[in-house]
Amino acid sequence: MEKYDRSDRYLKQLDDGQHEIALATKDLHVSYGEKEAIHGVSLDFERFKITALIGASGSGKSTYLRSLNRMNDNISGTKVTGQIMYRGLDVNSNQIDVYEMRKHIGMVFQQPNPFAKSIYDNITFAPKRHGEHHKKVLDEMVETTLKQAGLWDQVKDDLKQSALALSGGQQQRLCIARAIAMKPDILLLDEPASVLDPISTATLEDTLLQLKENYTIIIVTHNMQQAARVSDYTAFFHLGDALEYDETRKIFTRPKIKATEDYVSGHFG
């Protein structure tokens, strides 16, 4: 794993005025206690595009993703330095209301984790907590989000059924519907298809391609075919560094860095 020269990098710069940047990190470091897991990563994420973060286990891609909406704050001994710029604000600053920020930067996890409630209540739970009680508004929200998540047609006749009765793929799409009910700008997805079967995975990927019309999506995936199929940009992580960041079609046809080439072609390590 150490055979690659980590100073050999190519990171595409998107802050050239040609691309609208939804989120950017500047020299982001993440440490767990004494151990630094991310060694200063600077990446720009283009609006309404899907960016895939790929890399071997332990490369830091999930740690990086989780720090984007400060999920690492809850892990004791974790220190995150550097900037996470969103709409001109540094999300990593102490001044930021983390809960307010997460309305804008939502996350969907690896394991589908619906609440043990009805489908309807799963989606309206957070909006209700934030003061939305109009039934008409909530009904519309349930329909819109389920449609966007590609689940409406399958569940519209029984919105009161328990979310736990859904299949894994449906549960994951429900979690996406739940995340977008808060109308976030950015959706972070941490290996959302890793526990799904190929058909559910294909449906989920289709959902993502639909969602990118309205959302900026950043997805961590171990499945390189998935990254190749759905994403516009790909960042390759290795031992806590982003070594290559470029358009997906370039990463998978002619990457600039040897480590990336070896990883995507399966000759890694």
Binding site: A228, R229, R249, F252, T253
Partner: peptide
């Protein structure tokens, strides 16, 4: 064609 083979397998 090359990109479709690489990206869509």
């Amino acid at each position: 064609s090359f990109e479709m083979i690489a990206l869509q397998q």
